[in-house]
Structures are given as structure tokens and as C-alpha cells.
């Protein structure tokens, strides 16, 4: 019995530490905000120019001038600040953001990440993903362990164009948590989802990891 999306997000939320500044990617990573433990106070950064992102607004609070990087309406908090895109990416590229949680199409055993482009299909662009993986201190990927066609997404080497080289620190899939103590080291198995065996994980994984 693998983890569902909420359970994956909840597992990722355990990686948040009190006082962290965190950037959450679009999609499943956004769910992580719902599972932050009481007593853990994190500040969410939105790369379109906001620190201290609040929850979705009530219907009568909607403000077209207040959106997140997914273009969703949001709210501000007591701690919030607004700034330009250049200052936002100074935070990101300058190494001031503690953690970013992103989605992925492929992660390689050396930490390479591909999450922005499938050749031959319409390319929407990398947005801020390349900046985040190049500049944020720690990168966690939240993804399904296998693609819809059943292919392993943790691979020997990425086949898709890269977002960044050697940038991923931890992968949380529906089957397992794989992590490495430092960039340049090998990934190792940290945790299996309930009911998932090591043999099953090996069968469904292409890239090497230490168990």
C-alpha cells in the first residue's frame, strides 16, 4: 500500500524546520503547506514577489493584485513583504531560501533533475525552476515513483533536458524516501511506504541507491 498524494505531502512536511524560509512548487508540492506541524513556523516564499504567503482568501477577500506563482489568489499575513522579481530571485539565487520542494519528470541517481521540457511537445518554459535548483540550499522532489506508462522516474541518467545538474537532495515518491547526506554522494533508502517491500522498490526503480 503506497502513500497517496496527501501522505506524500505530509511526509515532505516533516522535512520543514522551525524558522525555515521555503518555496513550494506548483502541483503536489503546494499540498505540503496543509501538513506543517504545530510549533513549526515556516515562511513561504512565492517567486513572483512575496514572502509570508497566506492561505486562499475567503470569497469577499479576493484581490487580483495578490497571487502566488501558480497565479492563484492568496492572502497576506502579519509577516508578509512584497518585492520585485529581481529581489525575489536574489533571495533564491543568493542562497537565502532554506528549502524548495518541486515536482519532477525524472531524477537521476547523481541528482540530476528534469522537470520542464519534453522534446517534441509544446514547451511552456522553465519559469523559476532552474533558479530554484541552482540557488536554494536544499531541494526535495515530490513525484510518483513511476510514470503513467509504468517507467521508473528515478533513473540511471535523465533522458529529458535537465533543469539542473546534481541538484536533488531528497526524493519522496509514493513508494519510498531516498536521500543523500550531501550533493555528490549516493542516494540511500531512508524509508519505505507502508506495505512496500525493498524488492518491490528495486523492481520499480532504475537508478542505483544504497539500501
Amino acid at each position: 500500500m503506497a502513500w497517496n498524494r496527501d501522505q506524500q505531502a505530509a511526509r515532505a512536511a516533516q522535512e520543514l524546520q522551525d524558522g525555515f524560509y521555503v518555496n513550494l512548487g506548483i502541483g503536489m508540492p503546494t499540498l505540503v503547506a496543509n501538513f506543517i506541524a504545530p510549533g513549526v513556523d515556516v515562511t513561504l516564499q512565492s517567486e513572483n514577489g512575496m514572502l509570508g504567503m497566506g492561505p486562499f482568501p475567503y470569497e469577499d477577500e479576493i484581490d487580483a493584485d495578490l497571487i502566488n506563482a501558480g497565479k492563484q489568489t492568496i492572502t497576506q499575513l502579519d509577516r508578509s513583504s512584497y518585492f520585485s522579481s529581481a529581489e525575489s530571485f536574489a533571495m533564491i539565487r543568493g542562497g537565502h531560501v532554506d528549502l524548495s520542494i518541486l515536482g519532477a519528470m525524472e531524477v537521476a541517481e547523481n541528482g540530476d533533475l528534469a522537470n520542464w521540457m519534453i522534446p517534441g511537445k509544446m514547451v511552456k518554459g522553465m519559469g523559476g525552476a532552474m533558479d530554484l535548483v541552482a540557488g536554494v540550499k536544499r531541494i526535495i522532489v515530490l513525484m510518483e515513483h513511476n510514470s503513467k506508462s509504468g517507467e521508473a522516474k528515478f533513473k540511471t541518467a535523465c533522458t529529458l533536458p535537465l533543469t539542473g545538474k546534481g541538484v536533488v537532495d531528497m526524493v519522496i515518491s509514493d513508494l519510498a524516501v531516498l536521500a543523500r547526506p550531501a550533493k555528490g554522494e549516493a542516494f540511500r533508502l531512508v524509508e519505505l511506504a507502508p506495505g512496500v517491500t525493498l524488492d518491490e522498490l528495486r523492481v520499480r526503480t532504475e537508478g542505483a541507491f544504497l539500501a
Partner: peptide, 13 residues
């Protein structure tokens, strides 16, 4: 021409 968002912002700055 695609630019990473932070690179685009910094190129303009």
C-alpha cells in the same frame, strides 16, 4: 527565447 525567470529578471535589472 526561454530564459529562467530569475535570469530574465536579472538581465533586465
Amino acid at each position: 527565447e526561454f530564459n529562467p525567470q530569475g535570469t530574465l529578471a536579472e538581465r533586465i535589472r
